[in-house]
Write a protein that binds this DNA or RNA. Structure first.
Lengths: 195, 195
DNA sequence: CTTTAAGCATACCTGCTGGTACGAATTATA
DNA sequence: TATAATTCGTACCAGCAGGTATGCTTAAAG
């Protein structure tokens, strides 16, 4: 039954989303699954490796695939980015906004403390940035986006706002702060459309 | 010696900045000061109260005073906000960007877990927002800022970007991500100046 | 059919975390 | 000056987090 391992991964992912890595009690979580430490330590050498696996096998692929979809978007690239932002608002449930972005949470908690975390998180962020930057550059080549806009800057700006929007919504435990920030960013992004 | 209490507060503030609340080992920190648990538990009922005091007596006043200074700024309100952002880049040391904003860190870690933290953090954020919103509204009254700009939205946007900028810089352990984001926001804000 | 290895359960252990109990100086107060 | 209240140090402790050691099944390999 290979799926015991997957259960452990997914349940601990949820718990880590709520409590953070340091607050995560992995053995307690496996107990709730009706599984014991035997299975846990059979599949993972310890808590750190478990967390790395959650990042590598669950979180990273999801994020990269989500933003990688920009490459298959054939409308106006700016609208493509906006579509991805809007899709976030639809796909993510209310709890997710109260708990905050998994990515952002782990950055705040672990970036200065653990190099393994940091490198993994950076790789995900870089992937997202590349996807956005690529979209903007394609838009510039086809004259759909003003040439004077710097693609890297825009990508940076989008990510900055996205992380900030999650932070605000989490601080106030209310997704409307997320929605409002995304709305604002949407208006701003449309300003980059070429005349 | 009332200043033992203050030493405990300040040293634990530093430690909490690095390790977070859950990762903070208050008694260990106290030891490094050459003080023992006796003093620690004399002044604070426990770890939670210690953290609340750090927020109430150190972090909150600093932030509110910092942004409250907008009320005493007599140039163009947009430039006032930009000045505050620029001052951050000057006053905060490199370590601060690697460790992240104390505010943002605590939001990420504690907002969904502890109501006491959440209320305190919200109050600080509200204070900052009010200061920014007030500045924008004054600018609109004196026709220095376009009337169609919604002051609350701008304040929200500034905070969103600020938090996001700290997150990015922390993720990459490099303050240039902060600087770049602030620079971008600066350009954007200037666009609100009335003609 | 034997042997090996994978998958998992049980019991135990160690270090540390957060906290208490108590008492001794020191300082304030009557 | 007697007394009370602060201010701190010392010693102890309960719980638990994270991890080991070990052994029992079941499945795969030869």
């Amino acid at each position: 039954m290979r799926d015991v391992r997957r259960q452990i991964l997914e349940k601990n992912r949820e718990a880590m989303h709520l409590h953070g890595y340091q607050g995560l009690r992995a053995d307690l979580v496996v107990n709730e699954l009706g599984i014991t430490k035997g299975a846990y330590y059979h599949y993972f050498s310890g808590k750190q490796e478990l967390a790395y696996c959650i990042l590598d096998e669950l979180i990273a692929p999801e994020h990269l695939q989500y933003w990688g979809a920009l490459n298959q978007y054939f409308g106006h690239p700016i609208e493509g980015i906006i579509e991805r932002l809007k899709a976030l608002r639809i796909e993510l449930k209310g709890d997710y906004f109260r708990l905050g972005s998994e990515l952002n949470n782990l950055i705040q908690e672990m970036a200065p403390l653990d190099e393994g975390f940091r490198l993994r998180l950076q790789r995900i962020l870089d992937g997202i940035r590349m996807a956005i930057r690529g979209a903007v550059e394609r838009g510039q080549k086809s004259r759909l986006i003003k040439a004077e806009a710097e693609a890297g800057e825009i990508a940076n700006f989008v990510m900055c706002n996205l992380l900030g929007a999650f932070s605000l919504a989490k601080a106030f435990q209310d997704r409307k702060y997320f929605d409002r920030s995304i709305e604002h960013m949407t208006e701003y992004l449309r300003g980059f459309k070429g005349q």
